[in-house]
Design a protein around this nucleic acid. Structure first.
Lengths: 201, 201, 201, 201
DNA sequence: AATGAATGAGACTTCATTCAT
DNA sequence: AATGAATGAAGTCTCATTCAT
């Protein structure tokens, strides 16, 4: 099975693992080649450069998250359920990708090479906008508060989740991220919903 | 006046500016020297190594934020006012330090060198803990909700603010961060306070 | 043939030649790379650092001398013949390695890096001890004088040879070292043997 | 008293001490200035360059030894007594100057800078020649053997003493050098004298 | 005479990329 | 397609020397 996987994906998988361990800037092409069990030169058969490899990795991972979130969201009918599903999906992805996600989310934006940088910014924007649209829908439907800017609501969602993940990674590695899910939901929804009387949150 | 400033501080100021522009990993000693208008060797009169320079910079900046926040918090009587002051102080510091703060907060943790890494983690923990204590106080006083873990509440505060800052830096550079203050407050406090009926938020 | 030689040995050979010419402290990695006809980076494929390269060179050269001397000594039966063979072997090695040997013997001990320093001292001790054992054997057999400390006898052997080599290198480069062999033998043996009446020396 | 000493000599004294500790190549102008209690710039008031300082130091130390040896030699009548006095004087100087002497004797010749190198070689030659003259005198008088070249005899004297000193410094620091004096004498004189029947040695 | 902050050439080392096999 | 030895630009750091005070 694993053998079936094409080599490009294998290399990206390995790169991801190395980045998780060493961070973006400390990941060497050597490290990737060694862990992938291929020669350094081989990397260049599949990727034009380190930058290209990293860019493709970004793209793949973002797509994985985003398409996953889009899917779980579209399987629900109302905005609240969609948001709930998105946050849960986000945490699940995080659970499996911990350090890596923080790397691409925060370390990566400061990367020098323009291509990579642009791609990452683009991806970040995609997430921001997708979530933004969902929020706007909620505002139109009257379930999400309309007295604050949409980016602040999106910020509350992404920020709270990210920071709790950051906390868990750095200061409480034992705990499962999902164990925080309910609390995170409570806090986020209390913060962004319009009607708060006698509801779930 | 500016001339009076000691050279160590001048170099740190310059380093901060360069980091803001290029990110941690792309900042060269050469860059700092050039912008500071001194020779490369001069940097090594004031700092033992690049690592040392960066570590000292972290320390200075964290101290600046933390001591500022501690001060504004202690000037208030109740927890709500303290939190309000802390968030406002945080945004104000951000307003002036935009990229840099995100760099030290998120890019920096993935740094290789142990000294620097340890220092940053330590500082992050200090912030987490200080805010945690404030939150616990609020819980004891009955103003902050007690049905979720403290780190989630802290995460909501730091995360929301950070992500809105991140948004503003990356996608809406024109807007003042402080213009988001009221909205951020509304969302955060709605999310974390116990009594939500008929209050400020 | 020369082409067959592995690159590590090639680099060490070159390093040795450069050291002979410039001395330990003035030998740059650049010099070695250039003379070896490889890029600077290549040196680091074979040696972890300059220190490592130098240490390995020491080791190789010492082993060459010591194993050579051990071999010629063991091919003889009596102590006198062994010493004779050792001194001749020593001079022959010197003949081919002139400056280099003095470098590793005397300049090297003052080297800063601990690894290298330790290795050199160790090697020096090995020579001292091996020769010491031979001398002790001679003392037991009654051919070497027993009224002076062994280190003084060893010192006479190594010292006389070394200093004549030093003299030849510095003040009389035309002359073959081996042309001094008989004289050196006469002086050393007259100095250290027990019975001096009517003998060879 | 110490105050009376001119600063040039003070600096040279300090330089000598630092060289003993760190070796030639690891002695920094900084080290000398600090230990001498003067500013770095001050060194350059008294010496044109590091090279100049080292050269002057060589000169002073060589003169000290040589003039000392010349003096003790001239106070004796016969060649044997002169040699005896010279060797004893040599060991006494060594006793007080251990590492330093080996530094200037063996590490120093490989120094790059031409001025310094030339000076050291010159000094070495002076010693070689002075001792050579004494030996020639002994040969003419019939007390020193005439069947070997003079440099070999000189080599035996300088070499044996130097190597025993080297041994003592590196492998037996506890012992006084002078305690080896008699043994050294015995071995050297047995090696170089013409008549060995029933003499002192 | 004395200072010591500042300089900058030059050394070591890393690592993305190439290319002959 | 695959290899991995080789490359060399670019980075960090050292230290003899200078010069304004």
């Amino acid at each position: 099975m694993a053998e079936e996987k094409n080599k490009e994906d294998l290399i990206l998988d390995v790169a991801k693992r190395v980045i998780e361990e060493k961070g973006f800037y400390n990941t060497r092409m050597d490290d990737i080649a060694e862990l992938a069990g291929v020669a350094k030169g081989t990397l260049y058969l599949y990727f034009k450069s380190k930058d290209d490899l990293f860019t493709k990795l970004m793209e793949r991972e973002y797509n994985k998250v985003v398409s996953g979130l889009v899917q779980v969201a579209s399987s629900k009918d109302d905005v609240i359920s969609k948001l709930d599903a998105v946050i849960e999906g986000f945490l699940k992805y995080m659970e499996e990708n911990r350090e890596f996600f923080l790397s691409i989310m925060y370390e990566a934006p400061s990367i020098k090479k323009d291509n990579l940088r642009k791609k990452i910014r683009e991806n970040n924007r995609t997430i921001q906008e997708n979530l933004g649209k969902l929020v706007e829908e909620g505002v139109r439907e009257g379930v999400i508060r309309d007295d604050v800017e949409v980016p602040v609501i999106v910020g509350s969602i992404i920020g709270t989740v990210s920071r709790v993940v950051f906390y868990a990674i750095n200061f409480d590695r034992e705990k499962s991220l999902l164990s925080f899910k309910d609390s995170i939901m409570k806090v986020i929804f209390s913060g962004i919903l319009k009607e708060k009387g006698g509801l779930l949150w």
